[in-house]
Computed example of a mutant assay.
Amino acid sequence: MRTVVVTGGFGVLGRAVAAAFRENGDRVARIDFAPQAADANPGGLDLGGVDLTDATQAAAAVAEITDVMGGIAVLVNVAGGFVWEPLDEDAPGTWARMFAMNATTCVTMTAAALPTLKSMPGAAIVNIGAGSALVAGAGMGAYAASKQAVHKLTESLAAELAGSDCTVNAVLPSIIDTPANRADMPDADWAQWVQPDALARVILFLASPGARAISGALLPVSRGG
């Protein structure tokens, strides 16, 4: 039974990812900035109120998880955020916020968990990138740039870990079907959006024995599922 850590674990995608790993027979530790989750995490551990932009808090979370659940075999970095904003509205604040939420959380959590991941056989890191970061549209500069940082972290870390038994990959979803996205885009064709459960299954595959030959991949996920 593996110990799996999901950051942003109390959100829509985080809950879907955690559920997929639980159904696979794994134990899941969910970490989130929110104080508590809206659902249960049977057999797992929930850590709320954790600011993963703070390396000290990330390290403390990893220490608690390894103390309670043992070595971390899989890390899924879901924590992040989105904003659409033209450059002339609040550029410095928005860019800083997007990099903190999307890139810094990924870096701090990965760095904190890396020693235990490197010690585990068949370990895996899966990051959440973005298809829209490949070519940034209007108002997407801050978000796209922060997700590109996640992409480059994925590629670089995969190269650094080439001699280890830990893979590093990222999924690049198009629009994920969440209540927040529906509220922001009420006139869109929701049927074409990626379902959280479908994206969770792709993540589960990248952390499975069947994907051990894949590392450093930026995998587009663009079908509704």
Rank of each mutant, 00 (worst) to 15 (best):
N102C: 04
A142E: 12
T116I: 14
M120E: 13
D187R: 15
I176K: 05
A159F: 05
I176C: 07
P186N: 14
A111Y: 02
T105W: 01
V135Y: 09
G139H: 01
E160S: 12
A188L: 11
T116S: 14
A170P: 01
V171Q: 00
G137N: 12
K118G: 15
D187S: 09
P115Q: 11
E155C: 06
A130Q: 11
D189L: 12
A142K: 08
P186C: 10
G163Q: 05
T167I: 10
L114R: 03
G163E: 13
T167Y: 01
M140Y: 05
M109C: 11
S164C: 01
G139Y: 09
D184F: 10
E160H: 01
A180R: 15
T108R: 07
T110I: 10
Q148R: 11
G122F: 10
E160N: 01
C166I: 00
M185Y: 13
G129L: 08
M185P: 07
V171R: 06
A112T: 08
G137T: 03
M101H: 03
S146E: 10
G137I: 08
A111Q: 14
A162R: 11
T154W: 06
V135Q: 14
V135F: 06
A136Q: 00
C106F: 14
P186G: 08
L117Y: 07
M120H: 13
C166Q: 02
A100D: 13
A130M: 00
D187Y: 06
A138G: 08
I176L: 15
A183N: 03
V135P: 02
V107G: 09
P186V: 07
A159D: 12
A183E: 15
G137E: 04
T104W: 12
G129Q: 12
G122A: 11
V150Y: 10
A158C: 09
N181G: 08
A142Y: 02
A138R: 07
I128R: 01
P186R: 05
S146P: 02
D184G: 06
A111H: 13
S156L: 15
M185K: 08
E160A: 11
A142G: 15
G122E: 12
A183R: 15
N102E: 05
A133C: 11
V126M: 13
K147L: 04
L114D: 05
A113Q: 02
A188R: 07
D184K: 08
V150L: 09
Y143V: 10
V150T: 12
L172H: 14
S164K: 03
S164G: 08
L117A: 05
K118V: 04
E160F: 03
I125L: 11
Y143S: 02
S156W: 08
P173V: 06
I175D: 03
G137R: 01
K147W: 13
M140V: 03
A112F: 10
T116E: 00
T178S: 13
A170C: 13
N169L: 00
S132P: 02
S174R: 04
H151C: 10
G122K: 08
A133K: 04
V126N: 04
M120A: 15
C166V: 13
L134V: 13
D189K: 09
A103D: 04
D165N: 02
T105P: 07
A112C: 06
D187N: 09
G131D: 05
